[in-house]
């Protein structure tokens, strides 16, 4: 219940209507969107029960490892109702053609593979919010100071998922496990995304805001 309440509102990309469509415009829009979403996601993390009790250093480490997984999982959940399209924002939906134009076809296809998995399972909002918190708590940072505290956070979130499934999906005792088993693909896809945006950053043709840059650099 706390995670459902903490879930952020939808976000708008607001691409500049005066700029003609191009790969640079699309990437600039996405990087700006990501920067604003990251601010929202950091406030969200503070509402995960147990997260604020971690040391500031451990909170930072988990976010530095898991931020892209959180961004992608949100895009994936928003895209569940559509076919072969990614809802990066309520006003920014990318189809195959737009993905090609932005040079994001491979990355977006990888994200669509996640969408397909969750569609098949019928992922519910309750499951999505817990899974997102688990992705953060389980982001495998190498810099954790108090790994027992992080383990306790993982256990609480894992317990919440198991309790939910036991109540809502008693017909499928393996549903919680199935959801957890989607996380490797999320990790893999996020790593691809980070790699892609790191090379865009090195090109230097797309303006990026400071928080997005700071977190990309944490991954470099």
């Amino acid at each position: 219940s706390l995670l459902l309440v903490a879930e952020p509102e939808g976000i708008f990309a607001m691409p500049d209507p005066t700029v003609p469509e191009s790969d640079i415009k699309a990437l600039t829009t996405l990087c700006d969107l990501a920067d604003r979403e990251l601010v929202v996601n950091i406030s969200w993390a503070k509402h995960i029960p147990g997260f604020p009790s971690l040391s500031l250093a451990d909170q930072m480490s988990l976010l530095q490892s898991g931020w892209m997984e959180i961004l992608i999982l949100r895009v994936v959940f928003r895209s569940l109702a559509l076919e072969d399209k990614l809802v990066y924002a309520e006003d920014y939906i990318m189809d195959e053609e737009q993905s090609k134009l932005a040079g994001l076809l491979d990355l977006n296809n990888a994200i669509l593979q996640l969408v397909k998995k969750y569609k098949t399972m019928g992922l519910e909002k309750e499951e999505f919010v817990v899974l997102k918190a688990i992705a953060l708590a389980n982001s495998d940072s190498m810099q954790i100071e108090d790994s027992e505290a992080v383990q306790r956070l993982q256990d609480v979130l894992h317990g919440a998922l198991q309790d939910y499934e036991a109540t809502r999906h008693p017909e499928d005792p393996r549903r919680a496990g199935k959801l957890i088993m989607t996380l490797p693909l999320l990790r893999q896809t996020a790593a691809r995304a980070v790699q892609h945006f790191c090379s865009i950053k090195q090109d230097g043709r797309v303006p990026m805001h400071k928080l997005f840059l700071e977190l990309l650099e944490a991954k470099a």
Partner: peptide
Amino acid sequence: KEKHKILHQLLQNST
């Protein structure tokens, strides 16, 4: 941690 100033600040803000 000096490198991660913005993340640090955002986590310290109360909201």
